[in-house]
Design a protein around this nucleic acid. Structure first.
Lengths: 203, 203
DNA sequence: CTTTTTGGATAACGTTCGTTATCCTATGAC
DNA sequence: GTCATAGGATAACGAACGTTATCCAAAAAG
C-alpha cells in the first residue's frame, strides 16, 4: 500500500461532503456527473476511482445524509418537551424550506430514491430506520414516530413547491401545531384550545 | 377555423391523459420528450404544437393531476367518519404505494415542482389549495387538513422508497391510525387505546 | 375541384449525458 | 535514487437530451 489507506482517501470524503448540497438542491437526475465532481473540486475521472458509477455515489450520499439527520435528532434530550418542540420548529422553519442544500435529504431526494436500484433503496431503508429510532425516543411510540416523520417531511416538501410565502407559512404553522400533539406529556387537549391553540413558543 | 376548435384538439387531451402515468412513474427530469410523446401515441413534433416546451407541459400536467386528486376527495361525504376513513385507507394502501403511475401526483412529483419555474409552481399552488379545501371539509379545520395532507403524502412517498414490505406496512399502518385522529368526532382518545388502538376496520 | 391551413411525422441541430481509456504526477517502498 | 503504483486530470466515446426546421397529409372553405 503506497498511500495512507487507513484514512480512506480524503477526496472520497470530500465527494460525499461537498456534493450533497448540489444534489439536494438540483436533484439527483438533474445533476450531471461533471457538475457533481466539480462541486467537490475534482473532475469526473477522480470520481470514478472511488465510486463504480453515478448511482453508487447516490447510495453513499443517501446513507451519509440520513445518518446526519438521525444525528440531528439524537442530540435532542428525551423527556424534554421544550427541546423536542425546538427541534420540530427548526425542521419546519422557513429557513429549512428555503435552503434544501443545507437541509434534510428526505424532502428533497425520497422520490428519486424510490425510482433507484436496490443498493440505493437499501441504504435509504437503513438510514430511515435510524431516523425513526431517534424520533421514537422523543414520541415514546413507534407509530407516533412514523406519523411525525411523515408529517414533517411532507410539510417541508410541499412548502418548497409552493410559490406564495403566506401559504407556506400557514402550512408550516399548522403542522407545527399538530405535530406537537404527538409528543408525550402534552396530550392534544383540543377541547381547551380549539379556537386558537397557543403557538407562541413555536418560534 | 379549419379544424373543430371548440373541442380543443384531442391530442392535447391525450397528451395530458396518457403521459401523466409515465411522468409519475419515472420522474419528470428522467422522462425524455420523445418518450413522453410516445406514451401518448404521438411524436415530439406533435407535442411542440400544443406546448411551448417540456416545462410548459409539466405545468399543465401538474394542474390536471392535482385537479384529479382534489376530485378524488370531493366525492367523500362530509360528516361521515366511515367514508373518510375509507378514503384515507385507500390513499395509504400498498396498492397506491406500488403503483405511482396511477396514483396521486404529490408523492411523486413535488420535489421536482419545487425545482421548477414559476409557471409550474403557480399551477402546483393552485392545485394544492384545491386539495386542501376538499380535505378541510372532512377535518373541519384548516390546520388539521394541512397536517393530514402532509402526513399522507409524506407516508406514501417514504413507503415507496423503502425496500422491505413489512417496514412499509408498519409505516402505513401507523400513519393510518394517527391520521384518523385528525377527523372530527373521533377525538384522539389516546388514554383509552394507548396500547393497541383498534385498526381492524382500516382495511 | 381547388385552395388554404392545421396538426401531425420526420430528421437534423448542437448540447450534455454517463462512462471509459489514456496519460500524468506525486508518493511510499526498497 | 529508483521504481511501482494509487489517484488524479484530460479527452474522447456513443447515446440521449430538448428544440427547431422542414415536409406531408387531411380536411374545411370557397
Amino acid at each position: 500500500m503506497r498511500y495512507p489507506d487507513h484514512q480512506k482517501s480524503k477526496t472520497r470524503e470530500a465527494l460525499l461532503e461537498h456534493t450533497a448540497a448540489h444534489v439536494k438542491a438540483k436533484g439527483f437526475a438533474s445533476s450531471g456527473v461533471d457538475a457533481i465532481a466539480a462541486a467537490a473540486g475534482v473532475t469526473s475521472g477522480a470520481l470514478y476511482k472511488h465510486f463504480s458509477g453515478k448511482e453508487d455515489l447516490f447510495a453513499a450520499l443517501v446513507s451519509t445524509q440520513l445518518e446526519r439527520t438521525a444525528l440531528r435528532f439524537a442530540s435532542v434530550p428525551a423527556n424534554d418537551a421544550a427541546s423536542a418542540q425546538k427541534a420540530l420548529a427548526a425542521y419546519l422553519s422557513l429557513a429549512h424550506v428555503d435552503h434544501p442544500e443545507q437541509g434534510c435529504a428526505l424532502p428533497s431526494l425520497t422520490p428519486e430514491v424510490a425510482r433507484s436500484g436496490e443498493a440505493v433503496r437499501q441504504a435509504f431503508q437503513e438510514g430511515l430506520l435510524d431516523v425513526h429510532a431517534q424520533i421514537a425516543k422523543l414520541t415514546q411510540s413507534d407509530a407516533k414516530a412514523w406519523s411525525m416523520i411523515s408529517q414533517c417531511v411532507g410539510a417541508v416538501m410541499l412548502a418548497r413547491a409552493m410559490n406564495m410565502d403566506d401559504a407556506r407559512h400557514k402550512l408550516l404553522l399548522a403542522v407545527k401545531q399538530e405535530a406537537a400533539t404527538l409528543l408525550p406529556g402534552r396530550g392534544p387537549a383540543r377541547l381547551k384550545a380549539r379556537q386558537k391553540p397557543v403557538t407562541a413558543e413555536l418560534k
